[in-house]
């Protein structure tokens, strides 16, 4: 292991600080703008301000700000991981970065095949954004994934990708695919096309939001119980809800950590399966071969 230079370490420090700063900004915004309310409330994403637009006002909400902050954190984390990357490994973090890349490449190769290998950066970006957005509720931020607008945007992106790969064999082939296996089923096939993004977004958002709702209900119940059981303590000791210390953390391990990571993984898996399943590989290759043959025939004539 070689000694690193001073400027190298300074840049490292800068990256680490820039990883923490966005989350700190999010917490500061949360502390400064959250209205002081009595007790525990369950609200959606708060709207900070609206930008007037020709068709409709554009509201800037907490979930947009938080997901941008999470994106900045991931960006600087990636820069930190690849900083000082070299053919001859001399930093420990390079092993970790290579491990991540190898795992994701293997996952994409296993689920999507050789043709889609260019998708692994997209998949890991989606995984990291989704997982970190859900995990941001651990430090008290509003998790962007519990807002249907954020997850719905991702699902629409996946829907566009699916339609793009279905259109690869030409629009006529795409229209004909609706009449499989019988022409009578065309309306149902048409509906099931839209069911994919809806079910993907509802699945992710419902899981995270249900965790938030259950955690809040538990917090309310525990504070009531604590008032009932330990309310006889003298002075300010009686006002603190002692039962809320530690007990909600047990549920938080499942609902925030496990469920958040699992939903991120499932969203990425479904993206891979839907996109690779939408691509008619054999027909596309045959079409390509026929086109090449036609071109060659034209050349020979000319």
């Amino acid at each position: 292991m070689t000694k690193t230079s001073r400027s190298f370490r300074l840049l490292d420090m800068f990256y680490i600080v820039m990883m923490i700063v966005p989350l700190a900004i999010g917490m500061a915004i949360q502390v400064l703008t959250k209205p002081a309310t009595e007790g525990i409330t369950l609200t959606g994403a708060r709207i900070f301000f609206t930008i007037p637009m020709p068709l409709m006002d554009f509201p800037v909400t907490e979930s947009q700000i938080n997901s941008l902050l999470v994106t900045v954190t991931i960006f600087f984390f990636c820069l930190y991981m690849v900083h000082g990357i070299h053919e001859r490994v001399h930093l420990k973090r390079q092993h970790f970065a290579e491990l991540i890349v190898e795992k994701v490449d293997g996952l994409v190769h296993e689920n999507m095949g050789e043709y889609f290998m260019g998708y692994s950066p997209f998949i890991i970006a989606m995984l990291a954004l989704s997982a970190l957005s859900s995990l941001s509720s651990l430090i008290g931020l509003y998790p962007p994934t519990s807002d249907i607008n954020v997850v719905g945007g991702w699902a629409i992106l996946v829907f566009i990708l699916i339609t793009y790969y279905k259109l690869k064999c030409g629009p006529l082939y795409y229209l004909k695919s609706f009449t499989e296996p019988v022409a009578l089923l065309a309306p149902i096939n048409f509906l099931s096309e839209f069911a994919t993004p809806i079910s993907m977004s509802f699945r992710h958002y419902g899981n995270i939001l249900s965790g938030t709702v259950i955690s809040t209900l538990l917090a309310v119940a525990l504070s009531g119980l604590s008032n009932l059981v330990l309310g006889w303590l003298p002075g300010f000791l009686g006002e603190i809800s002692w039962l809320r210390v530690g007990i909600p953390a047990v549920l938080s391990i499942y609902f925030d950590v496990f469920s958040g990571c699992l939903q991120a993984f499932i969203f990425a898996m479904l993206t891979m399966m839907n996109v690779s399943g939408a691509f008619p590989k054999e027909d596309y290759e045959e079409r390509k071969r026929k086109k090449l043959l036609k071109k060659d025939a034209k050349k020979q004539i000319a």
């Binding site: 509802f202 699945r203 958002y205 899981n207 249900s210 699992l262 939903q263 993984f265 499932i266 479904l270």
Partner: peptide, 17 residues
């Protein structure tokens, strides 16, 4: 199994929404 569970969960999540 996790994938299948996630897909089986969808109907319950529609009800939740």
């Amino acid at each position: 199994m996790l994938m299948g569970c996630a897909i089986a969960e969808t109907t319950g999540l529609y009800a939740l929404v």
